[in-house]
Amino acid sequence: MGKPGRTKDAGYTGLPELNRLIHEPARLLLMSLLYVLESADFVFLMDRTNLTQGNLSTHMSKLESAGYVEIRKEFVHRRPHTLYLLTTTGREAFLRYRDEIRQVLEQGDLG
């Protein structure tokens, strides 16, 4: 089995294979946010991404099942909070995606 989110594309092979799971705009924004933050709760992610509760939930489930996002329960000001954070796998996948997309854009510039 390949890496999560990777698709076998038989097309043009000159460009690097992009991680489709991260490439989706809403999930890219979520991954970017969680990359720059240590962790964030559901409401914070909803507010920053303008996604609906259902949409965000679906995207987070996908990222979680790929092992990119981890859920942690913590007490913040004596209240329970469910916080989302990137796993090491998630961070690595995000960095790899960044390199790949940069390569794609650089190659696009040559044309």
């Binding site: 720059v36 933050l37 240590e38 962790s39 964030a40 409401v43 914070f44 992610l45 507010d47």
Partner: peptide, 20 residues
């Protein structure tokens, strides 16, 4: 400020822990 964040800010904008 702490009570304000808990009662007004967190229910509306959520809570985040900042990066390193």
């Amino acid at each position: 400020i702490r009570a304000y964040k808990r009662k007004i800010t967190h229910p509306r904008i959520g809570y985040a822990k900042w990066g390193e």
